[in-house]
Design a protein around this nucleic acid. Structure first.
Length: 312
RNA sequence: CGCGGGGUAGAGCAGUUUGGUAGCUCGUCGGGCUCAUAACCCGGAGGUCGUGGGUUCAAGUCCCACCCCCGCAA
């Protein structure tokens, strides 16, 4: 079976690897064009491109596949297309090319969390379970019929980055099952219940703003959901102190004020109905570190307010 | 040449402007105190100050080059 894979970030890599490892004939890979990224503004290939090249698979990087990629895709004569966090919307013309159709790997339990940042939104909204769904891609955004679904409990310690890693592996397994089931006819298409669907917008920097009037759980969820991007931070000595990891604390105090700051006891900040303990943070110019390590070299006064422009 | 911050003991930092004995908090090791300790007291070990060169009587500090780490830009 001739498969064409479309994907871009790290999340899609295990799916591509699994297909190759299972012996499927991946005849081409579509991914986003190299973008200037990283320090020095160098042109960087996407993780999926690097993986494809490692396997010697031809790579196509149209700026807009529905405009510049149609002929290339037709020439590949795919039986099946697989998308995973590709980052481009497919036109009907594209969808009509593969004989069997196009399967998408989506990192949520559809119909909840349609959109491009499903994992972050699941964490942000306090979901107890997260998961992946494979589906037939159609012209809408994550609206197609579902094929297989797998869920796991969401650990309260997980950041979005960590959950993404776990789900990318789960998604790869599910994709393999789906492709198998699709070829031997054992999977069935299940329409999404539109009444239960939610569509979540892309993340932006403003979402890294912490409302200290929120509950400890809500604040922890936000910190974890925004890690690694866009990140939650508070003003600190002219820069920003990034808050990377947290848990519910045990030292209540006024919202947004430091209630504990000690190399041995850790760092806690008061919020509605309790406090949040900051476990891991990142100072300007520094690497991520444990909050207790940070406090060995920086002293924070208890009672200091860290909301607003003042910082800490 | 996109902009900026940084590299000093096991960890986190100060010291660099103005060159002159390597400091702080914590950890660690030994001793003491205590019913007890994330408590306290005493003592010790632990450092090529990122690398190479230069200036100087003298360089963590000034000059040049290089290496590495991090933030912003999605």
């Amino acid at each position: 079976m001739r498969i064409v894979f479309m994907g871009t970030p790290e999340f899609a890599v295990p799916s591509l690897e699994k297909l190759c490892g299972a012996g499927y004939d991946v005849v081409g890979v579509f991914t986003q064009p190299d973008r200037p990224r990283g320090r020095g503004k160098k042109l960087m290939p996407s993780p999926v491109k690097e993986t494809a090249q490692k396997h010697g698979i031809p790579v196509f990087q149209p700026e807009k596949i529905r405009r510049d990629g149609v002929e290339d895709l037709k020439a590949l004569q795919p039986d099946l297309c697989v998308t995973a966090a590709f980052g481009q919307i497919l036109s009907q013309e594209i969808l009509d090319i593969p004989r069997i159709g196009t399967v998408n790997v989506h990192a949520s339990l559809l119909p909840r969390h349609r959109g491009s940042a499903p994992i972050a939104w699941a964490i942000l909204q306090g979901d107890r379970e997260i998961g992946v769904t494979t589906m037939m891609t159609d012209r809408g955004i994550d609206t197609g019929d579902m094929l297989l679904k797998k869920s796991i409990p969401l650990e309260s310690t997980w950041t979005c980055g960590e959950a993404t890693e776990v789900l990318s592996r789960l998604g790869a397994e599910l994709l393999l099952e789906t492709v198998k089931g699709l070829t031997d006819g054992t999977v069935t298409r299940i329409p999404q219940d539109e009444r239960e669907m939610t569509y979540d917008p892309m993340l932006n920097k403003d979402m890294g703003e912490i409302d200290w009037e929120a509950s400890p759980e809500e604040i922890r969820n936000r910190i974890h959901a925004m890690n690694p991007w866009p990140g939650c931070s508070v003003p600190y000595e002219g820069g920003r102190l990034k808050l990377l990891r947290a848990r519910v604390g045990d030292t209540p105090g006024a919202c947004g004020t430091v209630t504990v700051a000690d190399p041995k006891k850790g760092l806690q900040i008061g919020c509605r109905g309790g406090s949040v303990e900051i476990l891991q943070l990142q100072a300007p110019g520094g690497k991520p570190m444990q909050a207790k390590d940070f406090l060995r070299g920086h002293s924070l006064e208890t009672g200091r307010k860290l909301s607003g422009d003042e910082g800490i």
